[in-house]
Amino acid sequence: MAVKNLLKQERVDFILQRLEELYPQTPIPLDHKDSYTLLVAVLLSAQCTDERVNQITPALWQLADNPEDMALVPVEDIQAVIRPCGLSPQKSKAISKLSQILVNEYHSKVPENMAALETLPGVGHKTASVVMSQAFGHPAFPVDTHIHRLAQRWGLTSGKNVTQTEKDLKRLFPREKWNKLHLQIIFYGREYCSARGCDGTVCEICTTCYPNRKNPKKTKKA
């Protein structure tokens, strides 16, 4: 008797259960000590690994670890420290400018507000979502390249773009699970369902959701 591919709700239920078994604890991958250092670390992680960011930030926090001090550090000094993260000219300017804005407009505090965060230099929707969920505990579902790829492989979204993927995932999964689940999916993607390590026909979740899938699942880029 042929094994059937799981229906969408069955896939959702299985994914939630399996990820909870694999990753009951979800430590935040970026080292930080408060909302400001998390904001800067997330900004640095664009097109850079979390591991690399964690190697760089201790030296950056020695220069400054709060908006008042960072606003006084010359941009070229910031850039010299963060160069290994890539895109250092843009990132160093963004860190300097957002620090000045936090001092001048937000009493040196990171705003606990999605719209306000998205107006800061170098802070897009994904970065703002990470800060809202991980620094302040508000339900958010930041979609990075891992999550965008896995959501397509698991048949949870058409994957037209990250905005659509985020909408689809928010509709499918309970709101109270979002913050933990987004980290669980990232951890699973790195460990079992990476871009090269799985093509939609290799890892446990892909093969359980789609036992009849014969060909690699082509995923649309974010």
Score class of each variant (00 low, 15 high):
residue 69 D to T: 13
residue 69 D to G: 07
residue 69 D to V: 08
residue 71 A to E: 04
residue 71 A to D: 02
residue 71 A to Y: 05
residue 71 A to L: 03
residue 72 L to Y: 05
residue 72 L to G: 08
residue 72 L to H: 13
residue 73 V to M: 05
residue 73 V to L: 05
residue 73 V to E: 01
residue 74 P to W: 13
residue 74 P to M: 13
residue 75 V to A: 09
residue 75 V to L: 04
residue 75 V to Y: 02
residue 76 E to Y: 11
residue 76 E to D: 15
residue 76 E to R: 00
residue 77 D to R: 15
residue 77 D to H: 15
residue 77 D to Y: 11
residue 78 I to K: 01
residue 78 I to A: 00
residue 78 I to L: 02
residue 78 I to V: 12
residue 79 Q to S: 13
residue 79 Q to C: 11
residue 79 Q to W: 07
residue 81 V to T: 11
residue 81 V to F: 14
residue 81 V to W: 13
residue 82 I to T: 00
residue 82 I to N: 02
residue 83 R to N: 08
residue 83 R to C: 02
residue 84 P to W: 03
residue 85 C to Q: 10
residue 85 C to T: 14
residue 85 C to I: 07
residue 85 C to Y: 08
residue 86 G to Y: 11
residue 86 G to K: 02
residue 87 L to I: 02
residue 87 L to W: 00
residue 88 S to G: 06
residue 89 P to A: 08
residue 89 P to Q: 13
residue 89 P to E: 11
residue 89 P to G: 01
residue 90 Q to W: 06
residue 90 Q to T: 14
residue 90 Q to Y: 12
residue 91 K to A: 00
residue 91 K to L: 00
residue 91 K to N: 03
residue 92 S to G: 13
residue 92 S to V: 02
residue 92 S to K: 04
residue 92 S to F: 01
residue 92 S to W: 03
residue 93 K to R: 14
residue 94 A to G: 09
residue 94 A to F: 04
residue 94 A to K: 06
residue 94 A to D: 10
residue 94 A to M: 03
residue 95 I to N: 01
residue 95 I to P: 05
residue 96 S to F: 12
residue 97 K to I: 05
residue 97 K to A: 05
residue 97 K to Y: 05
residue 97 K to G: 01
residue 98 L to V: 04
residue 98 L to H: 06
residue 99 S to Y: 04
residue 99 S to P: 09
residue 100 Q to I: 01
residue 100 Q to C: 07
residue 100 Q to S: 10
residue 101 I to Y: 11
residue 101 I to E: 09
residue 102 L to E: 00
residue 102 L to T: 04
residue 103 V to F: 09
residue 104 N to I: 01
residue 104 N to L: 10
residue 104 N to T: 08
residue 105 E to M: 06
residue 105 E to V: 01
residue 105 E to Y: 04
residue 106 Y to R: 06
residue 106 Y to I: 02
residue 106 Y to K: 03
residue 107 H to N: 15
residue 107 H to D: 15
residue 108 S to M: 05
residue 108 S to E: 08
residue 108 S to H: 08
residue 109 K to N: 11
residue 109 K to C: 11
residue 109 K to W: 03
residue 110 V to T: 12
residue 110 V to C: 11
residue 111 P to D: 06
residue 111 P to S: 10
residue 112 E to P: 06
residue 112 E to D: 14
residue 112 E to L: 04
residue 112 E to C: 06
residue 112 E to R: 10
residue 113 N to C: 14
residue 115 A to E: 15
residue 115 A to R: 09
residue 116 A to R: 13
residue 116 A to M: 12
residue 116 A to G: 03
